Amino acid sequence: MTTPGTRPPTQATPGAGVAVENITKRFGAVQALGGVTLTFPPGQVTALMGENGAGKSTLLKILTGDHRPTEGRVLLDGAPVSFAAPQDARRAGIRIIPQEPEIIPHVSVAENVYAGSLPRTAGRRLDRAALRRSITDDLARLGFEKVIDPDRLGSELTAAQRQLVEILRALTGEAKVIAFDEPTSSLAENEAEALFALIDRLRARGIAIIYVSHRMKEIFRLADRIAVLRDGASAGVLDAAHTTESEVVRMMVGRDLSSLFVRQDVARDEVVLELEGVTTDDVTDVSLRIRAGEVVALAGLMGAGRSELGLALAGDRP
């Protein structure tokens, strides 16, 4: 019996999913990966974690055909595969949702999603009726029908909507493995929740999910397993249900986090930065005091003016 609010355990099929064996990747004299062996089983979410420069992006690019390994091999459903280009990986059922979306600005969301496989009439013209049926069905199936307009032009999309287009594009066709690279970096809370619900459904369908994020709350919300890279090598794989944030961080950095920081008492009465009624083209009448030793979080939704205020403070905006 499963405790309410928890996921039932998922059994991986032996030999299924995608795996890497002794993967090494060198760029000239620089070794980005060294002898990495990992498995990504079907029906499970494997969080791929590590500090910046640990090799996560390089490993994803090998899985999706952007890079060829210097040594080692990739296995899909137990059989060795070699991808000369990303199209080969896609045809094999491996998808990636990149951190930086690639959007065609002058066509609609629907045309962006099915770019390269648009439905055509007998006269080779775009079949808009078939396109409308496909995008309507897919948005409903994936739970995004209320968060994005299929008729909006690519040039009119917000950063969050551009990310959703990449997710929709990756989920067209038959996917066996889907890698998400920092997918919530531009998403609002409701959009992120729709994404998490989608990932739960994809897991239930037996798809192998690779999830890259630095956000611990998301990792422990989604992951069955946590695979950690450190300095281009595998530091180990943890059962997400039986580990802690501290253990994950310790594995990422190679030592206990408390040894990296020494507590210092800093006087907090000295105001080092003060804003009075700061107004730009993007923000209005912002007043703020920041004292020595403080960490001030600047929060707000996409478009609220956080970045613009920072640019004004740095002298980049008048």
Rank of each mutant, 00 (worst) to 15 (best):
T2Q: 15
P4H: 05
P4E: 09
R7V: 09
T10A: 14
Q11Y: 14
A12G: 12
P14R: 09
P14I: 11
V20W: 08
E21P: 00
N22S: 14
N22G: 12
I23D: 01
T24Q: 04
K25C: 03
R26Q: 14
A29I: 12
V36E: 02
L38V: 05
T39R: 02
F40M: 05
P41T: 12
P41L: 10
T46S: 10
A47R: 01
L48H: 03
L48Q: 03
E51M: 02
N52V: 03
N52D: 08
N52K: 00
G53P: 04
T58E: 07
T58N: 03
L63A: 01
D66F: 08
T70G: 08
E71P: 05
R73H: 09
R73P: 01
V74R: 03
V81K: 13
F83I: 01
R90W: 07
R90V: 12
R90P: 00
R91H: 13
A92T: 04
G93Y: 00
R95V: 00
I96K: 07
P98H: 13
I103T: 09
V113N: 07
V113S: 12
G116F: 12
L118K: 04
P119V: 08
R120Q: 14
A122D: 14
A122L: 15
R128D: 09
R128E: 14
A130G: 13
L131R: 14
R133T: 15
S134I: 15
D138L: 15
D138R: 15
A140I: 13
G143Q: 09
K146E: 09
S155T: 10
L157R: 04
L157H: 05
A159I: 08
Q163H: 04
L164N: 01
I167L: 05
L168V: 03
R169V: 03
G173R: 06
G173Y: 14
A179G: 03
S186N: 11
L187W: 13
L187S: 02
N190I: 13
A194V: 10
L195V: 01
L198V: 11
L202D: 05
R203S: 12
G206Q: 04
I207S: 00
I207W: 10
A208N: 07
R215F: 09
R215A: 14
R225K: 12
V228M: 06
L229E: 01
A233F: 02
A241D: 14
T243Y: 00
T244C: 02
S246D: 14
V249Y: 01
M251Y: 11
M251F: 07
G254E: 03
R255L: 08
R255S: 04
Q264F: 03
Q264K: 12
A267P: 11
A267I: 07
R268H: 10
V272W: 14
E276W: 02
G277L: 05
D281W: 00
V283Y: 11
V283N: 12
T284W: 13
D285K: 00
G293Q: 03
A299N: 09
G303M: 02
A312C: 05
A312Y: 01
L313T: 04
G315V: 11
D316G: 06
D316L: 11
